[in-house]
Write a protein that binds this DNA or RNA. Structure first.
Lengths: 299, 299
DNA sequence: AAGCCCTGATACCTGGCGGGTATCACGGCG
DNA sequence: CGCCGTGATACCCGCCAGGTATCAGGGCTT
């Protein structure tokens, strides 16, 4: 019937994340009773139980888990609407491009040089896996991402460049002397386990490797001889003197792509996409000409 | 700062679509003054002018056009959150599959047969181009769509089948006697112009062909000898006795895909996707194994 | 030119509801 | 057995969404 309000979604997300009405209310800056009432009303309106209350907190039901995921994307979309509208009203707005720190540095440099003077571009750096979120919630207009490692669902893209991967090893490690490696050799080095990244919900998968959250943590761990990693050959801007890169011959190739929210039609974005496509003409995947999710936005 | 409420977005969308405060207020079931005030507050909060007021109505500014697009997707996301949550709380829920009427009928039949008894599936038929919207706003869980004609941006997909296209002609037309045609021959038959479909905003592109909105309108127009169309070979369930299908040898191949919102993890959906992929093993594009937007949802 | 009409804007009132405080119910635990 | 910490309930208050009445002004007609 009547639509949900974003306030209700924000409240539910807070409770679902804290699993505790008191703390959630605290975080929201309101008192606990109105929060309890709001969630109860929400459950009543949806006709679905979202939380199992308990003397020591609350637990999500299946429906609650669905709403948590859906509410997050809905709130992102609302926030994106506000941000993009504010930016559209600012005539001096630069295009905001988000990329992983250090990834595809040379390519980005060439792209920025090519549009310098015509299209102002602001570069926003983020940690691994955050680009999609920044794009979805309107903090950025366009992103440099990588297939198949990043989640490109929901974006239009053009392919920019495809390349092999290298293993980054501590210089002191025996494997560092090799001039090439295979995935099998890399994946079961007993005293050099692969690091673990957080999942979307912030928890870590099980495994022997160290838990990392940022690229600089990882760089340091490699330098300390505690882990290794396999990354695209061009993503080496943050390489330390203690690091050695060895090509991994059978690792899947990584394609660098320029990604943007579907439907974006600003002339600046269209110009950037056109320039990027032009820069990489030779490398582009022929599929991109026929695939509808890979067309440039019209002006 | 403070987030927008969906009420504000609904109000703005109404005004932006009507371009008239009075009619918009009417449609929303409120009076005009509160609506004017709400829009003014919205503009003030965003720090952006959204509408140019005028004695004879209102006109969208650039920022207003951005907000209209963003607000629609945000409202879709909120509506989807409500719908999907309600459905998640209903233990008897069938999976809702949406498809264009008549398209890929045999494939769908095989798919439904294959999951009959294990996964209840409700089939929702819609007109051309509506599937993406139904999927985005939560009315459906999964869709049968076609690449490259449908907009697949924002969905995970598996390829099911690829096939050539045929021209559907009035049986009385001279070209109907041919056993094959080319795109060039089809596209400039002077007295048989291709029909025009509405754009997303409901307006029609210019051109000589008749305006159509549904497949049955189109079927009738072809039977009347007023237009022709080019469609995948399998989409002929609605063919009339007055229609003749002739292969178009150089038309781009159409791939039938199963598409669903990224992140959906219901066991029923996963089972359907697995079954579909199994059914079409031989036809599947090898790329689907490595492309992240084409992986089956995990259970 | 003088009204009229149709547009959105302004003024002002009212009621519902979102939010607050105080308190209850209840189970775990020392 | 009483204390603590959980969420639920009761009740009050003030704000703001929404209503009515009215204004302002430009393009019509006459």
């Amino acid at each position: 019937m009547d639509d949900l309000e974003t306030r209700e979604l924000r409240y539910f997300v807070a409770v679902a994340e804290e699993l505790h009405f008191g703390r959630a209310a605290d975080r929201l800056g309101i008192a606990q009773p109105p929060l309890s009432r709001a969630i109860r009303q929400l459950e009543h309106r949806l006709g679905v139980q979202l939380l199992d209350r308990d003397r020591r907190g609350a637990a999500l039901t299946d429906a609650g888990r669905v709403l948590l995921r859906e509410a997050r994307t809905a709130l992102d979309a609302v926030a994106a609407a506000a941000r993009r509208t504010r930016r559209a009203g600012d005539p001096t707005r630069p295009l905001v491009l988000v990329t992983k720190a250090g990834a595809s540095h040379e390519l980005l440099q060439r792209l920025l040089d090519a549009v310098a003077g015509t299209t102002p571009v602001e570069v926003l750096l983020c940690e691994v896996g955050e680009q999609a979120h920044r794009l979805r919630d309107g903090q950025a207009d366009v992103a440099i991402m990588h297939r198949p490692v990043d989640d490109l669902a929901g974006f239009d893209t053009v392919d920019l460049h495809t390349e092999g991967q290298v293993a980054i090893l501590p210089a002191a490690h025996p494997l560092a002397a090799r001039d090439q490696l295979t995935l099998a050799e890399v994946s079961d080095v007993p005293n050099l386990p692969i690091a673990r990244w957080p999942r979307l919900d912030g928890t870590y998968p099980d495994g022997p490797g160290p838990e990392v959250r940022t690229q600089s943590q990882l760089a340091q761990l490699v330098a300390l001889g505690r882990t290794l990693l396999v990354i695209p050959a061009s993503s080496r801007a943050w390489q330390w003197p203690e690091h050695v890169a060895v090509p991994v011959v059978d690792a899947p190739h990584i394609t660098t792509v320029l990604a943007w929210p579907p439907g974006s039609r600003s002339p600046a974005l269209a110009a950037l996409v056109r320039t990027a496509a032009g820069l990489c003409e030779g490398y582009r995947n022929a599929e991109s000409a026929t695939h509808p999710t890979q067309e440039a936005p019209s002006t």
